[in-house]
Simulated scan of single mutants.
Amino acid sequence: MTKSELVAAIAEKAGIRKKDAEAALNAFIAVVTEALKKGEKVEIRGFGTFLMKERAQRVARNPKTGEKVTVPPKLVPAFKPGKDLKEATEQELKKKRKK
């Protein structure tokens, strides 16, 4: 699903104009981004948590030369799904597997 498809789905579900849905989605993205930049986590009960995780240092290979390269540790944004989201998606997956 692309951002424009998401905006259209939100507008339809909420019964609002696409322009308003896009503004709300952009505001949500901006708020989450700012919180993550500050090192805060954003928890939406039942849906999930946006947070920053530290990726450990590792040894990788340069695909061009095959040379070993040390990749330093870094912080990356992550999403941890909540209980309700996990259950809802698992149920849907089970339905599809039965078919």
Results as ranks from 00 to 15, higher is better:
L36M: 03
K18C: 05
E40G: 11
V42L: 02
D20W: 03
L51S: 08
R61Q: 08
L25M: 03
E34L: 10
K13N: 11
I16C: 05
L36V: 08
K38Y: 12
I29S: 06
E54T: 15
R17T: 15
D20K: 05
I16E: 03
L25Y: 00
K64T: 14
T49S: 08
R45Y: 14
A21R: 01
V42M: 03
E40C: 14
A60W: 04
V59H: 12
V31C: 10
A21L: 02
E12I: 14
A8H: 06
I10K: 05
F47N: 04
A21K: 01
A11Q: 02
F47R: 06
A23T: 14
M52W: 11
A27W: 06
I44D: 05
I29G: 03
E54I: 14
E22M: 06
A8V: 11
D20T: 09
A56W: 12
V32Y: 00
V7D: 06
I10D: 01
E43N: 11
D20P: 04
A30I: 12
A35M: 00
K19T: 14
F47A: 07
I10P: 02
F50A: 03
A14R: 09
V7E: 04
Q57N: 08
G39L: 05
T65R: 04
A24D: 03
E22D: 10
G46Y: 11
I16G: 02
M52V: 08
I44T: 06
Q57P: 13
A8L: 11
E40W: 11
A56T: 13
K37D: 12
L25I: 01
T33C: 01
A11H: 00
K64A: 13
A27H: 13
G46D: 12
E40F: 10
K18V: 07
V7K: 04
A24N: 02
